[in-house]
Design a protein around this nucleic acid. Sequence first.
DNA 1: TTTT
DNA 2: TTTT
Lengths: 142, 142, 142, 142
Amino acid sequence: MSLNKVQLIGNVGKDPEVRYLDNHVAVATFPLATTEKGYTLANGTQVPERTEWHNIVLWRGLAEVAEKYVHKGDKLYIEGKIRSRSYDDQNGIKRYVVEIFGDNMEMLSSRPAQAGTTPPAQPVQTPQASPQPNSAADDLPF
Amino acid sequence: MSLNKVQLIGNVGKDPEVRYLDNHVAVATFPLATTEKGYTLANGTQVPERTEWHNIVLWRGLAEVAEKYVHKGDKLYIEGKIRSRSYDDQNGIKRYVVEIFGDNMEMLSSRPAQAGTTPPAQPVQTPQASPQPNSAADDLPF
Amino acid sequence: MSLNKVQLIGNVGKDPEVRYLDNHVAVATFPLATTEKGYTLANGTQVPERTEWHNIVLWRGLAEVAEKYVHKGDKLYIEGKIRSRSYDDQNGIKRYVVEIFGDNMEMLSSRPAQAGTTPPAQPVQTPQASPQPNSAADDLPF
Amino acid sequence: MSLNKVQLIGNVGKDPEVRYLDNHVAVATFPLATTEKGYTLANGTQVPERTEWHNIVLWRGLAEVAEKYVHKGDKLYIEGKIRSRSYDDQNGIKRYVVEIFGDNMEMLSSRPAQAGTTPPAQPVQTPQASPQPNSAADDLPF
DNA sequence: TTTT
DNA sequence: TTTT
C-alpha cells in the first residue's frame, strides 16, 4: 500500500567510493547533481539556476558495476528509493542524512571501456531483496 | 539535461499546516509515511518493517486543495522533486532538511466530503495546458 | 541506455483472466482504466472526461496474486513497461496490440480478504528476468 | 484518482514531423526506440535483444523545441501519458494506434547547436509556475 | 470494461 | 506522526 520511488538524471560529482562488507557485499556511494535551469518570472524576478546534490547508495551487483564503470562527470539515470539515516557527528550532535538507495541505473554517457573490462549488460538492476542496514528515520526535525 | 522526480504513495501523518506568504501564495506542509513490509532472508534473518517519513511541501493551488481535503491518515499519491534546505537551529547549529516539493497529488482515500465543501477536480496539478485533439480509446481488441 | 517505464493508477475493468503455460508459469490479463477529468478551457470550450483503457499483463507471482486478490472495480497501482505485439485477426488482417507488462503492483482498494485466503505481502514484485513470449514491435503504422 | 504516466529514455528513429494547426498550435511526431538487452536464462535459453518503438506526440512549446533541436539518432528522455486513437485505414479497416503524449523532454545527446539557434532552456516542460524560496543544497555532510 |  |  506504499510507494517510495525516486528517478534522477544527473552528473556524478566524484568517483564512487566502494567498500565491501564482511559478507563480501559491495556498497558504493557517490554524489549526483541534478540542475534546474534558471528562469525569469512574469514580474521580472530572476530565479537562478539551482543544483541539488543527491547521496547515491548502491548495493551488490550495482555497486560493482559502479566501481568499474562510473566516474566523476558521468551522466547517469538512477532509480531507487529515499532512505533517511541518523548518525552522531564528531561533536556528538545527531545528524540526519537522506540517501537514495538505487535499484536501477543507466549509464547515459558513452565512454570508451577501460582496458580489461567489458561493458555492463543494461539495464543493470538489483535482484529482489536489498539489504537493510542499521538506519533510523524517526525524529526528523520537521 | 537533468531529472529530479519523486513519486510516493503513503499515509498522511498529520493534518497539513498551511500558511500564506505576503503575496497570498499558499504553502502547505505535512509528513507522509511510506512503509516497506518486513520479510525474512534466505538465511532466516528477519528484516523488520520500515517506515520512511517524507516532508511534503505544496504550493499555491495544491496547497489550497491540501488545506481543504487532506487529513491525517489519508492515503495520497504525491509526485514532485527533492529539495534540500539548511537552517540554523536554536543552538546555532546548521541543520539540513530534505523536502519533497509536490507538483501533482492524487487523493487515494475516498472520504465523505466535509459539509460546505465540494470535491476537488482530479488530478489536481500545477496548472498546465494540454490540448485534447479528436481521439478514441474505445473498442480495443483485448 | 534505455528506459521504458509506465506507472498507472486506475480501476480494474474485469476480473483477471489467468492461464498457466506448459511450464506452469501463470499469466494474468485484465483491463485497467485511467480517467482524466474534464475541464473548461479559457475560451469556454468544454473538454470532456476521457478514459484510457490499458491492457495489463502480469507474470508468475504477480499473476498469482492477481488471480487471488484483484477484482473488477479495484483500484490498483501498476508499474511496468510498454510492449507491442502483433497478431492476425480472424480475417487475416494484421493487428497490433499494446500491452503493459507489469512488474510491480500495489492494491489501493482495501477490501475484506476472501475466506480461505491470506493477504499478500506488499509490494509484490517480479524477481528479475521476466519471460519474453513471441511478440513483434516492428512495422508499426506510424 | 488516476495516474497515467510514461517515462522513456531512447533514441529518435526519424527527424520529427511538425505541423501547425489552424490555431497555430505546433504538433510534433516522431518514433522513439527503447531497447532491452538480450540475456541468457538459467536453462540456457537465449532471450534476444528487443526494440520497442514508441509513437511520440508533442504539443506547443515542446513541439517547437523538437522541431529545432531533436534529430534522428538523438537520445531523449520523454515523460508523458499513453493515449489510444483509432482511424480508418485506406481499406476502410479500423486501426488503433497508441501514442505517447509527452509533457516533459530532456535532450540527453549534447550536440553542437545549429547555426542561428540558441540552446533550449532545460528541462523543457509545458509551462508551470513553481516558486523557489530561499534554500540551500550545498555542503551536504556526505 | 472501471471509477468519480 | 500514518497505515496494514
